[in-house]
């Protein structure tokens, strides 16, 4: 039977993540009797739901060998467009559609420069980060826009299916779709091949530019959607909405074992990494560790996720040499 994933790499990193996750979960249970209750788990996800929705598309982009630093700005811009239009009397439904369209447009702009002009995505999306944020500022200035219709505000919190709010339902659906696309579809295969070796992919007749463009458009739309959901959850929009989220998002992806150089990673690993980061933050909350120490811990985790395998490799090499000399 063909293996469904690359078991070799899965065994190592994903197992490690699962073990660490189990430890954190056990700790959390020991600290709080309500940890495993459904409302607590829903709450766990909901605290960072917008980020983890964007994590899914970021996974594909990084596996493809690129990066999108502009996602947080697109999130903010999506929310600001919706708020601004609503304030001007446009209906909320139409405003949301325009917001998603603006997200797609941001994606097209990023994708054009990266895929067709072949500029480094780090520089392009850094410019995007600043520019899209700037447009959001133009729209909202230093105000806070709120007073959205009730149905919109409830989108952010009210349970839709069973105990799950809309954004959580969206997350799970997207997770399943992305897992299927990345690991079982032709598009996913192309994403990996291009991430491994862009030129080899081109020589095999893969439409490299279209794939990259597609990914950036998806990134724009999903980021904008996440920003709108964020607005619904908070009930108000500022120009600074979602500012700085890009680093958290990228951290979760890399912690999930996705290679920053592209071509390697699984959505299973990213799923575990999402759970780990959420549970870790929850556990630290239980210990009343503040948000900043939490980001410190996540930062350390990020570095260690690459450092430890490297050091183990060094140690193994050293050990092998010692053994050979001894022989």
């Amino acid at each position: 039977m063909p293996p469904s994933f690359k078991w070799d790499s899965l065994k190592r990193w994903e197992t490690l993540l699962a073990v660490v996750l189990a430890v954190v979960v056990i700790f959390n249970i020991s600290q709080s009797s309500v940890f495993l209750r459904v409302d607590n788990l829903v709450n766990l996800f909901m605290l960072h739901i917008e980020k983890i929705i964007v994590v899914l598309i970021m996974t594909l982009i990084i596996i493809n060998g690129e990066i999108d630093l502009s996602v947080a700005s697109v999130m903010g811009l999506g929310a600001c467009v919706v708020a601004n239009l609503y304030e001007r009397g446009v209906s909320m439904e139409a405003a949301i559609l325009v917001g998603l369209g603006v997200g797609a447009l941001c994606g097209i702009i990023n994708g054009f420069w990266v895929a067709y002009v072949r500029l480094p995505s780090l520089a392009v999306t850094l410019a995007g980060l600043i520019a899209y944020h700037g447009i959001a500022e133009m729209l909202v200035e230093d105000r806070s826009i709120g007073n959205f219709p009730d149905w919109f505000n409830q989108l952010g919190q009210k349970a839709l299916i069973g105990p799950l709010p809309l954004s959580l339902v969206i997350f799970f659906i997207l997770f399943i779709i992305f897992a299927a696309v990345l690991h079982f579809s032709a598009f996913g295969r192309y994403v990996f091949v291009i991430g491994n070796n862009r030129e080899a992919a081109r020589y095999s007749g893969v439409r490299v530019r279209q794939v990259k463009m597609m990914l950036y458009i998806m990134s724009g739309v999903i980021a904008s959607l996440a920003g709108i959901l964020f607005a619904a959850r908070l009930g108000a929009v500022r120009a600074s909405t979602a500012e700085g989220f890009e680093l958290d998002i990228i951290t979760v992806v890399l912690l999930g074992g996705v290679s920053i150089f592209g071509g390697k990673g699984t959505l299973a690993g990213v799923g575990l990494s999402i759970m780990l980061v959420l549970c870790l933050r929850n556990g630290m909350n239980l210990l009343s560790i503040t948000g900043n120490t939490q980001s410190t811990v996540i930062g350390v985790l990020l570095i260690f996720s690459v450092l430890i395998p490297n050091l183990t490799q060094d140690f193994q090499g050293f050990w092998n040499r010692r053994r050979m000399i001894a022989k």
Partner: peptide
């Protein structure tokens, strides 16, 4: 508030002109 939007555009143009 236009500032950042123009700044981003400018950076993009700078990178593009490099290429």
């Amino acid at each position: 508030f236009v500032r950042d939007a123009l700044l981003g555009l400018f950076i993009l143009l700078a990178v593009a002109s490099d290429a």
